[in-house]
Amino acid sequence: MSEVKELTCICCPIGCSITVEMDGKEVKSVSGNNCPRGDAYARKELTAPSRIVTSTVKVTGGDRPVVSVKTASDVPKEKIMDVIREISKVELQAPVHIGDVVVSHVAGTDADIVATAENEKV
């Protein structure tokens, strides 16, 4: 039994409307995407959806009380709140630099949490 699913690609702000033909749990075809990332997104979204998570982490002794962070790679969608819970416990000492690893293998995933901004020591 083939089934057609409509998705909006979230890989970039263009937001392509993607049509996916499914046969049971298998993806038969992907169309409507403007780039290969859309193809990969559609296949993944229907089998194992994942997201990049962005948030902030507390900083002491810095020019701002928080620094922005992200997961260096995407994490399973159902793990988003676990990731957030874990990074809310973290407190860093300034200075923090872009790319600094803040937590490795966050919430049991393969992804590290890295800083995405500079926080200078004051």
């Binding site: 890989c11 702000p13 990049i52 962005t54 922005s68 992200k70 872009i98 995405t116 901004a117 500079e118």
Partner: peptide, 24 residues
């Protein structure tokens, strides 16, 4: 600097950055 979400820079840098990273 306050747009800490990702999705910036795909056209310019061919990678997905957060706002502060794109600005940097």
């Amino acid at each position: 600097n306050q747009c800490i979400h990702n999705g910036f820079g795909l056209h310019t840098f061919k990678e997905e950055l957060t706002g502060p990273e794109y600005a940097a």
